[in-house]
Computed example of a mutant assay.
Amino acid sequence: MKTESSHHMSGTAFAAFDKNLSPAALGYTFPAEFAPHKATWLSWPHKEASWPGKISSIYPSYAAFIKYIAMGEEVHIHVGDQVMQDFATQHLKQAQVNMENVYFHFFPTNDAWCRDHGPAFLTNPHAEHRKALVKWNYNAWGGKYPPYDLDNLIPLKIAEYRQIPYFKPDIIMEGGSIEVNGKGTLLTTEACLLNPNRNPHLSKTDIETYLQEYYGVSNVLWLKDGIIGDDTDGHVDDLTRFVNEDTVVTMITEDKADENYKPLKDNLKLLQKMRLENGKQLNIIELPMPGEIIYEDMRLPASYANFYISNHAVIVPTFHDPKDEKAIDILTDCFKDREVVGVDSLDLIWGLGSFHCLSQQEPL
């Protein structure tokens, strides 16, 4: 376990690229999550309002999540101060986390959702700087949960710490709204990226161009709506995920009375018509939707698709539901090279997100 300060470190790489140069033009791409990682970045949960009345109950699951990641890669955790670091350390030690792989940074945040406020790490093995990042703008899913000024600074702090250059497109984009196969195809949803609370000045074509230029993809596939209860306006990471270059898992429910029945069915039909960057059809594996989880009269966005792929393990949210085991079995078949583990997410999901929403991978 190490604490890393946020002061400027020696080197010259930490600088914005020329505005006129895009990552794609310079040969950078955004690797798939199943490609090898150097690290996972997290923002320690501390905002009571994200888990009203329940925040103290989320830490055992959050620490178990970190335990599995730290078995195979570095874990970098943003904390506000020494008090928060000590509190986090206590929980991680209780969970028997390998603290040799844990690094703390005094990078204060407003909230915990590092998938969305963290950077997009890009790679180009032939460039002078093998790694770069995209510093998107972040507005807490359309200005829903101010303040978010500290969260919006996180990518620049990471670029400075890692001494890697960055791109700054100056539009709103969240990591949970896109999914890539690492070979040129990106999946997203109209419900989120075309929502007027993000980039009202941009057309669908404009947004597609940004996706191609800044994630280094050639093939953008659009799904429609997200799941009920998802306050991000329909992030793809609750819906459909790549498990390898040509295979997705996608959420489905057989229960016609479930509000998710039609949007998930429509989603599946769209996936069946889609083609990868090489013209091939997607292999589609169906994942069952857990039963409704209602808390304080609110349907929560519980989804097995919000798993996180780390070097050692695939960490799957579970919900005390009979379908938990089936989902883990399906994902175990998808990931022969990794341990697939279920970690209790019943309290975490009260924050309206789970393991994927909380994490951001840094490729090798």
Rank of each mutant, 00 (worst) to 15 (best):
T188G: 13
T188V: 05
T189K: 07
E190Y: 10
C192N: 01
C192T: 00
C192I: 01
L194V: 04
P196S: 15
R198W: 05
N199F: 14
N199A: 11
N199K: 06
H201N: 12
H201M: 12
L202C: 12
I207A: 12
I207N: 08
E208M: 09
Y210L: 03
Y210C: 06
E213M: 04
Y214M: 00
Y215C: 08
V217Q: 00
V217I: 11
N219H: 03
W222D: 12
K224H: 04
D225M: 06
D225P: 05
I228Y: 11
G229L: 06
G229A: 06
G229S: 09
D231Y: 15
T232E: 14
T232H: 15
D233S: 12
D233C: 07
D238P: 02
L239I: 13
L239S: 10
T240M: 09
T240P: 13
R241I: 10
F242Q: 04
F242I: 03
E245I: 02
V249Y: 01
I252T: 04
E254H: 13
D255Y: 13
K256D: 15
D258I: 07
E259M: 06
Y261F: 15
N267V: 02
K269Y: 08
L271E: 04
M274T: 10
E277R: 02
K280H: 15
K280N: 15
Q281G: 13
I284P: 12
E286T: 14
L287E: 04
L287Y: 09
P288L: 01
P288S: 09
P288F: 10
P288A: 04
M289V: 01
G291C: 07
G291M: 07
I293K: 09
I293N: 14
I294Y: 00
M298T: 13
R299L: 13
R299W: 02
L300W: 02
P301N: 08
P301I: 06
P301H: 08
S303A: 14
Y304P: 11
A305S: 03
Y308A: 00
Y308F: 10
I309P: 10
S310L: 05
A313K: 03
V316Q: 13
T318N: 08
F319D: 07
F319I: 00
D321H: 05
P322G: 00
K323M: 14
D324W: 06
D324M: 01
E325L: 11
